[in-house]
């Protein structure tokens, strides 16, 4: 495309975007009820996650099932429990990180879907690139080899720490998996550590299998998929969250193995390792 045509296209694209911007601003400057977005945002009490963060969903459910009306849950905010770090125990889940409690307990099904998105995209990457092979990379220098040998064990250690403490501190399975995969990338670039894709795939699919198996066991123990059937402890302790610790560890392993497969596939093509 010539330069002159390009500028006209860019100008119209800019106009289009500008109009979209003005249009997008309109809900913010609405009169009367229009400011609802702002009004509601300042109050967490109007939301579902209020009960999630106070870990009192079961309590509310009990009250509501007497009234038999689940659409009026916003009116009974007083009966929620108090959660104190290091003291409260036997709550619905003992995770100190409230985001984790939502990700893996209240909305665990979403996380299952998230896992599958990652799984299927890496699988697709290996399917798409399976007939390609790329040029070989340069030999690493001395500095790189030494640095990688020094740093990689620490990275794997940090990764394991993060997925074990996913319910206490920020982080969890997905970031931990990313860190572990970065460690394998370093070892691939730095010291030509040539791992086999099929082994990693084995780890990955086994971890995924066990995640769903654990979730399905909930069907047997509690009567619903993804139900928690292990006891909970004191909020803030390592063994406080029932299934979350196990599932997050499996997720960490799975994501680490998965991203490593992706890196290896992009690095070399799947063609010339094993088989």
């Amino acid at each position: 495309m010539r330069e002159s045509d390009f500028n006209v296209g860019k100008f119209f694209a800019f106009l289009f975007v500008l109009i979209l911007f003005l249009f997008m601003l309109s809900p913010l400057f609405e009169e009367g009820d229009g400011a609802k977005i702002d009004k509601n945002l300042s109050d967490i009490k109007n939301r579902v996650s209020y009960f999630h963060s106070l870990k009192s969903v079961k309590e509310i459910e009990r009250i509501l099932s007497d009234n038999n009306d689940f659409s009026k849950y916003r009116e009974i905010t007083d009966s929620a429990k108090t959660v104190i770090f290091g003291e409260s125990k036997d709550l619905e889940n003992g995770t100190a990180n409230l985001v984790t409690s939502i990700v893996l307990d209240y909305r665990g099904f979403d996380t299952l879907g998230e896992l599958i998105v990652l799984f299927i995209s890496i699988l697709g990457l290996t399917i798409i690139l399976s007939t390609l092979s790329f040029a070989k990379f340069e030999e690493p220098s001395f500095l790189q080899i030494t640095g990688v040998k020094f740093v990689t064990p620490f990275m794997i250690l940090v990764g394991i720490y993060i997925f074990l403490h996913g319910h206490l501190s920020p982080g969890g399975g997905f970031p931990a998996g990313a860190i572990i995969a970065t460690a394998t990338l370093f070892s691939l670039i730095g010291c030509k550590f040539n791992y086999r894709v099929s082994n990693l795939k084995f780890i990955e699919s086994n971890a995924g299998f066990f995640v769903i198996l654990l979730a399905t066991l909930g069907l047997y123990f509690t009567g619903s998929f993804f139900g928690n059937y292990l006891p909970t402890g004191i909020v803030g302790k390592l063994y406080s969250s029932s299934l979350i610790l196990i599932i997050y560890s499996l997720v960490g392993l799975k994501v680490g193995a998965e991203l490593s497969v992706g890196i290896k596939t992009l690095y070399n093509g799947e063609k010339d390792d094993d088989r």
């Binding site: 509310i60 209240y106 993804f226």
Partner: peptide, 13 residues
């Protein structure tokens, strides 16, 4: 209605 995670709607999925 199928409940997932033992939390009734609208609290769970």
């Amino acid at each position: 209605l199928t409940v997932i995670g033992n939390y009734l709607p609208p609290f769970g999925i």
